[in-house]
Simulated assay, not measured.
Amino acid sequence: ARLWFRRGTQAMAFVQRTSAPLWQAWALMEAKEGNDSEARRLFAVGLKQNPKNRYIWLAWGVWEQEQGNEERARYLLSYGFKVNPRDPALVQAWARLEAQAGNLTLARRLFKKGIRVDERHQPLWQAWGMVEWKEGNVEKARELFQQGVWANPRNKNAARVFQAWGVLEEEQGNIGVARQLFKCALKVDQSNVPAWQAWALLEERQGLLRKADDLRALCLQQRTEEVYLGVVDESVAAGIEALQNTFERFAKWFGPSDARARSRQQQAGGEAVASVLAAADDRRRGVPPPPSSAS
């Protein structure tokens, strides 16, 4: 694999900007093999070829976070967002980092900024909802999951939001509502394995082992032509009725729709890789960082 990566990057040396994906893939391979120094070198080369490449900023930053290098990850993600101010994925990753570091005020500010950048980016809504859920703000989490679904209800990412919302409702004891949300997830994307699995686990925990086995069979056999529709518990009928209007709105979205034209113009600027890493090192030594770009 290294030989082919080497040949590929050499062959594309004359079009440096388009070779960045190769450098990123090579870096990720080395990272997976535990060759951290080589991975960083390859990420840096990729950014040298194209300083605006949002995928490398994101992949490198997330990887550094996974390695426990919080400061370096913060600088990579924040600088990546600085040179790609219209990219919601970068600000989402930065916000999640801050939330995990306990900087909830900054994290919420970044989530809001990401929504302003692209309110249809459903992973942002889901990530923010998960943060609020973890903090015990269940109503706020519900609101964010609902906004995430409404942002783009026919996109497959909506299935992930439905699934997370369903798990929340199960945790709150709203079993019937959770079932309906899992069904909604599978109507959006019937190949969504986490939704099938979460629904099966719910039924298993309710003692409905046969139903759980049926759901797992449907998932494993990829029999996704129609969603398995079980009987809703009468004991939670009131809870479902309270959300009936919401589900009716969902149902309307699952039908034919007019195509919507969307365009997102990427704004970019260049930043030297060396300055980013130097800034992270300065932060580690206690040198005051530049003012945050979050507002």
Rank of each mutant, 00 (worst) to 15 (best):
R2H: 12
R6T: 12
R7T: 10
G8P: 07
G8E: 07
T9A: 12
Q10L: 13
A11N: 11
A11C: 09
M12A: 13
M12H: 11
A13T: 10
F14M: 10
V15T: 12
A20K: 00
P21G: 07
W23S: 02
Q24W: 01
Q24A: 11
A25W: 05
W26Q: 07
L28Q: 15
N35V: 02
S37V: 14
S37E: 15
E38N: 09
R40N: 10
Q49R: 14
N50M: 06
N53P: 04
R54P: 06
W57G: 01
W63R: 03
Q67I: 03
Q67Y: 04
G68L: 07
A73C: 09
Y79I: 07
Y79A: 06
G80P: 05
F81S: 02
P85W: 01
D87G: 04
A89M: 10
L90Q: 02
A93T: 08
R96I: 11
E98R: 06
A99Y: 03
A99F: 04
N103F: 02
N103K: 12
T105R: 14
L106D: 10
A107S: 12
R109F: 02
L110C: 05
K112A: 15
K113V: 03
G114E: 04
I115Y: 00
H121D: 13
P123V: 05
P123G: 07
P123Y: 06
W125T: 02
M130T: 09
V131M: 15
V131D: 03
E132M: 05
K134H: 13
K134G: 14
V138H: 06
V138D: 11
E139C: 02
E139P: 04
E139V: 11
E139G: 05
E139T: 13
K140E: 15
K140G: 10
R142A: 05
Q146I: 13
Q147L: 12
W150V: 05
N152F: 10
W165V: 01
E169C: 02
E170P: 01
G176C: 03
R179G: 00
A185N: 03
A185G: 07
A185T: 06
L186M: 09
V188R: 02
Q190D: 15
S191F: 09
W196R: 01
Q197C: 07
Q197E: 15
W199Y: 14
E203W: 00
E203R: 00
E204D: 14
R205H: 11
R205C: 03
G207M: 02
L208E: 08
D214M: 10
R216A: 06
L218S: 07
L218Y: 07
Q221L: 14
E226C: 06
V227H: 05
E234Y: 00
A238K: 06
A238L: 07
A238E: 12
G239Y: 00
G239R: 02
I240M: 04
I240R: 00
E241W: 00
L243R: 04
L243V: 02
Q244G: 10
Q244W: 08
T246D: 12
F247M: 08
R249L: 13
F250A: 00
W253E: 14
F254A: 12
G255T: 10
P256N: 09
A261I: 11
A261H: 13
S263P: 04
S263G: 08
R264I: 14
A272W: 09
V273R: 01
A274F: 08
V276N: 02
A279P: 06
A280D: 04
R283Q: 14
R283K: 14
R284E: 14
G286S: 10
V287D: 08
V287I: 15
P289G: 12
P289I: 04
P289S: 13
P290Q: 08
